[in-house]
């Protein structure tokens, strides 16, 4: 068990190293790379030369790589080349809680919608409920999250004027201000995820409900609620957990776009603004942090799965 977790941790670290290395070299190998564009933007050749030296670009690439990796490991991601040259780690430090609260709230909303819908569809298979949820799930999956975001703004901010259309307020300024700014983006991000989750819970439940021990539970005359929640749901959730990692990744991907609709300065907005401004230290830093979140949620899910499912074998 410990060995398995250790192996997964090492694997996650390797993936992170590979991402960092690939991003470092690809950013420099592509023609018209942002570095050269940046030097070009400086204009004055002498100033450009100075910047080159300051950034260490006059050294061989492997030396640059080693120095860069060393700095990254110390948490130094360089400075933004745009505006007031804030340090990248500070920008990211401010962005991370925004993205995580958005993704977290979206996750919660999705769960609240998907679990009852999935169970109901499975238990009342073929009913009007089942069909309605099936159609809703298809719609949810096909609807671009940024469009849903616009529709939500249109209805709840523009027409009903119940909620603010853009911006972010940290939780420290109070629960309601935080929630009111975050709820629309969270619904926009969580909808596709909840559609997938509902479908998966439905099929997992159907699978379990067929099994003998459930038949026995019915035959014993146990109340419906007990059979469904205690006997069926607990086992149906095991396969669902395996895809939670991928699903959470989907939430993060959604957040990247939706943050830009609601002008929330989270990781996604930082990344996209960085790309648009050709602010390559910011882009590099944002890619590293976003990737780290993916890799470590996957790790967490893997570990969680082995803890929950006693049937899994740790050694291969």
């Amino acid at each position: 068990m410990t060995r398995y977790i250790l192996k997964r941790v090492v694997h996650a670290l390797l993936v992170m190293w590979a991402v960092a290395t690939l991003v470092f070299f690809m950013l420099r190998a592509v023609p018209g790379d942002p570095l050269r564009a940046m030097l070009f933007d400086v204009g004055d050749p002498q100033a450009a030369e100075e910047l080159r030296r300051k950034l260490g670009l006059d050294q061989p690439i492997y030396v640059q790589y080693a120095l860069w990796l060393g700095r990254v490991l110390q948490g130094d991601l360089g400075n933004s080349i745009y505006g007031s040259r804030v340090s990248v780690s500070r920008i990211l430090k401010e962005a991370i809680p925004r993205t995580l609260s958005l993704a977290g709230l979206a996750f919660l909303i999705a769960l609240l919608l998907a679990v009852p819908a999935g169970i109901l569809s499975a238990v009342k298979r073929g009913s009007l409920w089942d069909h309605t949820f099936t159609v809703l799930a298809f719609l949810g999956l096909s609807m671009p999250d940024f469009w849903l975001a616009i529709l939500l703004i249109l209805v709840f901010a523009v027409h009903l004027q119940w909620l603010p259309a853009i911006g972010y307020v940290p939780l420290s300024k109070g629960f309601w201000p935080w929630l009111s700014h975050l709820i629309l983006p969270a619904i926009a991000v969580g909808t596709a995820f909840s559609a997938i989750l509902a479908r998966m819970i439905r099929s997992a439940m159907l699978e379990v409900l067929r099994l003998d021990y459930i038949q026995v539970a019915w035959a014993k005359g146990l109340p419906e609620r007990r059979v469904i929640f205690k006997h069926a749901l607990r086992n149906a959730l095991i396969p669902v957990i395996t895809v939670m990692g991928i699903a959470f990744a989907l939430l993060m991907a959604g957040a990247v776009i939706v943050e830009n609709v609601f002008a929330i300065k989270g990781l996604g907005r930082v990344l996209i603004q960085g790309i648009l401004n050709r602010d390559y230290p910011v882009v590099q830093g944002a890619i590293l942090v976003v990737s780290a979140i993916f890799v470590f949620t996957n790790l967490l899910v893997d570990v969680l799965y082995t803890l929950i499912n006693p049937r899994i074998r740790y050694e291969e």
Binding site: V15, I287, V290, V295
Partner: peptide, 21 residues
């Protein structure tokens, strides 16, 4: 497998970050 660890859309954003818009 490396690419598999990330959603396709995120990979696309990364690549646009590298190649340009």
């Amino acid at each position: 497998d490396l690419q598999w660890a990330f959603p396709n859309f995120i990979i696309a954003v990364y690549l646009v970050a590298i190649f340009g818009t």
